[in-house]
């Protein structure tokens, strides 16, 4: 997969040269681009709180995007970058809350509800019919 990807990438290089339009955030590798995209879409803008960092035009969002961009370029991993932001802004900045004691209900509640519901249903029909 990775190999095919690299070949594709090198095949596309001439094309990229022809249309040398500058990407707003330019990356040398596709992996870095995806890392940046993944990070900015999963982080919440703290100013306009209904947008992620990728979408927001608020000044702080632009600053944070630039920070993330530079960190991605310098080769930091996503958990490192997320940790950097959480230390400053708290878990509020994460659109995907971390899995820990306080969020146990959030992550497991739905599945517990579904599984319990299905088991209860089957149990109920079997039991009641036997009578």
């Amino acid at each position: 997969m990775k190999k095919a990807f690299l070949t594709l990438f090198f095949l596309l290089i001439p094309l990229q040269l022809v249309f040398a339009v500058e990407d707003e955030y330019h990356f040398n590798t596709e992996a870095a681009r995806q890392q940046f995209e993944g990070l900015t879409t999963e982080l919440r803008c703290l100013v306009c709180q209904n947008q992620n960092l990728a979408e927001s035009n608020a000044a702080l969002a632009v600053d944070l995007r630039t920070q993330i961009y530079q960190k991605v370029l310098s080769g930091q991993s996503s958990p490192e970058i997320v940790d950097y932001l959480v230390k400053r802004y708290g878990d509020f900045i994460l659109y995907r809350p971390p899995f820990k004691l306080q969020t146990l209900g959030l992550w497991l509640g739905p599945f517990v509800c579904l599984i319990f519901g299905l088991f209860y249903l089957i149990f109920y029909i079997k039991n009641q019919r036997r009578r």
Binding site: V47, L60, D63, L64, Q67, R88, Y89, G90
Partner: peptide
């Protein structure tokens, strides 16, 4: 001016 130090302080508004 750049707002970089403010990020360290967790300023958002």
């Amino acid at each position: 001016v750049t707002g970089t130090t403010a990020i360290d302080w967790g300023v958002y508004g």
